[in-house]
Design a binder for these strands. Structure first.
Lengths: 133, 133
DNA sequence: TCAATAACAGTAATGATTACTGTTTCTGAA
DNA sequence: TTCAGAAACAGTAATCATTACTGTTATTGA
């Protein structure tokens, strides 16, 4: 049987995510943790992010073709993805009840979760003038 | 100005997708079109899938860490993704109105679309006994 | 018919992620 | 408090999905 052993690196990753609401990618986590563990490897970051997400402590968000994002907030909530900068924002609303009813009625299988993602251009990118016209 | 030129390969891809409701990946499209154009290259498949999706004729679905799927049905509808086999199914329901209201009220930017994806295990995988207990 | 150029096949390169390998760090039982 | 077994590590190679490049072929409109 495989037990999960404590590791300082994993704790650092967990703590970094806890104090962070920006849904960082593995690379961003890597860059941050390197300040504390200069020799940590990217593989270690990926392995621990996967461990944490398999144990349900964090959530892996695979919303786009690009890199996955990781969220420490595992409560039910939705996200907004900016098509320009790729950033992922929280949507301040709870699970919509109509969605759960839809799942039960129409799915061609057993639904255990759903993701609702809004796409568009974030206020930061709009204000920055990255978009013409 | 770049005009889009006719190509037999692109027509074959379009027609394959039209007669197909299984949301194939680029590799699956490639395998199918090869029967007709044995020397088509995977790059051509990708380029045309992207052309078709940029022109709005098909839709690229990036729901998971794995490969993207492509959908000829561009009408508003939702999908169900099987965690076991990765297949993407249609959910037979229209855009939920509550979702659109939520987008307008809470998004930290300008929303232009949303995706609602249900995750679980499909009937095929459930029946097949791939899942224990 | 023919030149401009989009699209092609084939292949190399990229980006994200996972797998492998030999070394280090935990952990719980002696 | 050792200390051996196993999990985790750093470093690196490999894989997978996708895009970019290059010289050739196909399409198109004048």
């Amino acid at each position: 049987m495989k037990t999960v052993k404590y590791s300082r690196q994993r704790e650092a990753i967990r703590e970094f995510l806890m104090g962070n609401t920006s849904h960082p990618t593995a690379d961003e986590v890597y860059a941050a943790i390197r300040r504390q563990f200069p020799s940590i490897s990217l593989g270690t970051v990926y392995r621990n992010l996967n461990l944490l997400s398999e144990s349900g402590e964090i959530k892996k968000l695979s919303y786009t073709t690009g890199p996955d994002h990781f969220d420490y907030d595992t409560s039910r909530h939705y996200h907004f993805v900016c098509r320009e900068c790729g950033r992922v924002y929280d949507m301040p609303l709870e699970s919509i009840e109509a969605v759960n009813r839809a799942a039960e009625e129409y799915a061609p299988g057993a639904v255990d979760s759903h993701e609702l993602v809004f796409y568009g251009v974030c206020n930061a990118c709009l204000g920055r003038g990255t978009i013409s016209a």
